[in-house]
């Protein structure tokens, strides 16, 4: 890291603390790299089960991200811009899955969307539609735990945004949808990207809700985290390699998108992060 003018004015103790924090995150990763069986790595990655799990993980986490954006951005907008009774209750409700143990989240999804669930029984009876044990079930479980990360991020950005911009657009005759699309959305773009990346990363690593609600079957519902966990029991070396694959993918996305969107444009958009 090069010293930049006017930037590194931090006193030594603060730098020491910051470095401890970096080490706190770096050491476990170094531990994995240290224990990784490098000579076997390619063999572990390049087998049908691993590749199927990887492909499934990427597809499902991307779908979960798309669903999070489509439903989460309007939700964040509602929470940030519309005054209504019980708003804090709704906000807490919509971020509940962030604090719920994921396995409990999976069981709760059963009660809602399983074949005996509140809604699920009618999906089953009327449309012959069953979500548990399907790839769609994986997407649903991942969306359930991931969407709050996007909602929280986008809502924070909307709160920071000067509401007068939207007022001006409306006063000038912009319809609500037009204002949202042409004024609000462009202004919170970086936050939407930031939130999407967070939601995607969370979906990619999702384990508990997935195995509970969607189960674990190679090719249809066995995502990478499930494959990693099961390998830990029988072949810890393989588990480390698969975990590293997951880390490399998310690391690349986080690094690339972060530089490009969070700091590249106007520097200030990092405030959008929760």
């Amino acid at each position: 890291m090069k010293r930049q003018r006017g930037r590194t004015n931090l006193p030594v103790p603060a730098i020491a603390l910051a470095c401890s924090a970096i080490a706190f995150f770096a050491l476990p990763l170094i531990g994995l790299l240290w224990r990784a069986p490098w000579s076997q790595a390619w063999r572990y990655i390049n087998d049908d089960a691993s590749l199927a799990a990887l492909r499934l993980s990427l597809i499902c986490s991307l779908w979960a991200t798309v669903l999070s954006i489509v439903f989460g951005v309007p939700l964040a907008w509602l929470l940030a811009r519309v005054q209504f009774r019980g708003r804090s209750f709704v906000r807490a409700l919509c971020t509940l899955s962030m604090v719920l143990p994921p396995v409990v989240g999976g069981v709760a999804l059963f009660f809602a969307l399983g074949r005996r669930g509140i809604v699920g029984q009618y999906l089953d009876r009327w449309f012959d539609l069953r979500l548990p044990f399907t790839t769609a079930g994986v997407v649903l479980a991942q969306t359930f735990v991931a969407m709050p990360f996007l909602v929280v991020t986008v809502e924070a950005a909307l709160r920071q945004l000067d509401g007068r911009l939207e007022d001006a657009a409306r006063t000038l005759g912009g319809a609500p949808w037009y204002t949202f699309r042409r004024v609000t959305l462009p202004a919170i773009g970086p936050a939407v990207v930031a939130g999407s990346v967070l939601a995607w990363a969370r979906a990619l690593g999702e384990f508990g809700a997935t195995i509970t609600f969607a189960g674990n079957f190679p090719g249809t519902t066995q995502t990478m985290p499930l494959a990693v966990f099961l390998s830990l029991e029988t072949n810890p070396e393989k588990a480390i390699v698969l975990a590293l694959v997951l880390i490399v993918i998310s690391f690349t996305v986080l690094v690339v998108l972060r530089d490009r969107w969070f700091f590249g444009r106007n520097g200030g958009s990092s405030t959008a992060l929760p």
Binding site: V107, I211, T212, A214, G215, F217, F229, E233
Partner: peptide, 15 residues
């Protein structure tokens, strides 16, 4: 599904 815990199998049947 192949569950990683026996209680996971139990939950899927009891639910």
């Amino acid at each position: 599904s192949f569950d990683e815990r026996v209680k996971g199998v139990v939950t899927k049947v009891t639910s």
